[in-house]
Write a protein that binds this DNA or RNA. Structure first.
Lengths: 106, 106
DNA sequence: CCGGCAGGTAGGGGACTTCCTACATATGAA
DNA sequence: TTCATATGTAGGAAGTCCCCTACCTGCCGG
């Protein structure tokens, strides 16, 4: 298990890269296939894929002259762990809010 | 409910801003209090707080000449929603992996 | 009123991001 | 072998980010 690094947050900060991840939810795809969904030149897609690869969010498998990129959700599951304290915070605030509303209603 | 925007991902892309959120888990704090935890000048902290505010991740309450910043976890809970499809993907992959291992063991 | 403190804003420098157009590399097909 | 296809890499332009040093506003206490 790699630790959740800066790279993951930085990778997610770009909408094209998030869209790439979303496309990969349906399964592995080639670079050209992925690029066809964007209004952007292919080399830029290659660069985005490199950022995602360096963050551990995708992996690549060579097959002839194609490369199939596959989603690696591990870092995103670590992001979920990162969120846990905030979820607790959020629940506490909702509970408090509910109490206040109950007081006012009684 | 505000939709999960680019602003939230962009705000989280900076380690100082993530640290600010973490500090605010313990409750509201003033700018000077927050700044004291960083090796960075106060105006930069103000700027980071503005980014967080624009993303809806913190709110501000004036009290005399101080301003108390409070964590607003709402956008982070939307981030959790954003993660859901990836969690499903992750679970499926684990299940598949387990099947493969079972086959090999039998 | 006046000095000092809390905090925001302006402007700028340096590094980084993101896109582009060439160009390089490798593999499949004819 | 020779051409075309799939992809990566180089280098550069434009924009953005992040930090800084002034500087400004507003509130408190004497």
């Amino acid at each position: 298990m790699t630790a959740l690094t800066d790279d993951v947050f930085a990778a997610l900060a770009n909408p094209a890269r998030r869209e790439l991840l979303r496309l990969l939810l349906d399964g592995p795809r080639t670079v050209n296939d992925l690029a066809s969904h964007f209004d952007m030149r292919r080399p830029s897609i290659s660069e985005h894929l490199k950022v995602l690869r360096d963050a551990g969010l995708v992996s690549e498998r060579k097959s002839g002259r194609e490369r199939h990129y596959r989603l690696e959700a591990g870092p995103l599951m670590e992001l979920q762990d990162w969120l846990h304290p905030y979820e607790r915070f959020w629940r506490d605030r909702l509970k408090t809010l509910r109490h206040v509303l109950d007081e006012e209603n009684s």
